[in-house]
Design a protein around this nucleic acid. Structure first.
Lengths: 213, 213
DNA sequence: TTTCTTTGTGAAGAAAAATTATCAACTATA
DNA sequence: TATAGTTGATAATTTTTCTTCACAAAGAAA
């Protein structure tokens, strides 16, 4: 289900958009200003934010770069009543994916929303193609076992790892660790302890949603 | 953030648990009966459900198997005031991961919660190790490209695929399609159209959260 | 209908890549 | 200085991928 966050101070518009989005198969939530929006974004993942630029409290232009920095993969469409070329350009430069002027027809918005998400699909595809090292790395059972160990134990020395893996040839373990390091799935701290990298953590947690039920 | 759903008809207890869980670094929500719980579960993913067995409306024992069937990876701890060996056994057989009798000390509950989630971690590890075919399958760029194509186009014929992939030898494409089929990442409908399997869809959407920002 | 082209599938051996085994070092540290 | 821990380089082996050939089914063309 595609989650959309509607951020606007006008409750009527908000409720209206939520209803329309819901009717069109999206899962919408709403927020009435920037602070509220950031809170909602922290609590939940959204695919798309519809962001009003003028609001009391933290306004849209202020919120936009904050959202983009914290959640780079979330798409943002700016909605604005007082539109100038400059403000539009500025919004796009700050990371908005599209820009719509009020008043707008609901269909116009839906077209933009769909196009925006379609482009996001493209992004996913790029990533699928460009993370070759990562996938090659995950293709080996020993290496996955290493990830699993580090997920459970969080930190391990080289020799402790080989013992836990029950592999008697330690140079073999070393070979795999090297590949894992090169794919940035694990890293070493100052004391040569191996641990999952942020990337590595993401992957392991992701497995739970991928693997068969 | 680990999400916990507290299901109990006693509002005091509910509020109390939500507060405690929140203080202990969890992200809790609450529901007051079975129907309510199922709705919340549908709207959002939860890692753990604390489920009261006796409630007006749909009670816990009734709700338990429904939750387990729909969300097999969600952990469930039953909470119950009138405890017998039989009811405990029955709950466990229906898929509860733990069983606590009321009244309980809050620490007792937290211990159970943590252990439960720890065991879930174990489950993730199992999956990491046992889905060898899938990872082997994803290790190849051509095969990932196929997944990507099917993600965008949803359905494709054999020859359309080879053309889009710009591979002139169609038997090579076939080789990879076979492997994808064997790993259950794609499937064919009656008219021999290739499409993503449910598994395959999950993987592609998962990529967006794995790949580097 | 027969023939030809496009589409779709399978399999075996060659080529390329990944993995293992072996040997050789270097670094702490007790 | 021993001893365990750690890493790298290389050849041998196994797996994966590519190439080539063979073949069957469906539809178009003669």
């Amino acid at each position: 289900m595609i989650k959309v966050l509607v951020v606007d101070d006008d409750q009527d518009l908000r409720d209206n958009l939520v209803e329309v989005l819901s009717d069109n198969g999206f899962s919408p939530s709403s927020a009435e200003n920037g602070e509220d929006a950031l809170e909602k974004l922290q609590a939940d993942k959204f695919d798309l934010v519809l962001l009003d630029s003028v609001m009391p409290g933290m306004d849209g232009m202020e919120t936009l770069p904050l959202i983009k920095r914290a959640y780079p993969k979330t798409r943002i469409i700016m909605l604005t009543a007082f539109s100038t070329v400059n403000s539009a350009v500025e919004a796009m430069r700050s990371g908005a994916d599209d820009y719509i002027t009020k008043p707008f027809k609901i269909d116009e918005l839906l077209v933009a929303v769909r196009r925006c998400l379609e482009e996001a699909k493209f992004g996913v595809c790029e990533e699928l193609l460009n993370s070759d090292d990562m996938f090659k790395c995950l293709a080996n059972a020993t290496r996955r076992k290493v990830l699993m160990l580090l997920y459970r134990e969080s930190k391990l020395r080289f020799m402790d790892m080989t013992r836990q893996l029950k592999i008697d040839d330690h140079t073999k373990v070393n070979f795999h660790l090297k590949i894992l390091k090169e794919a940035h799935l694990i890293e070493q701290d100052g004391r040569k302890n191996y641990q999952l990298s942020p990337q590595g953590k993401k992957i392991v947690t992701c497995m739970s949603s991928i693997a068969a039920d």
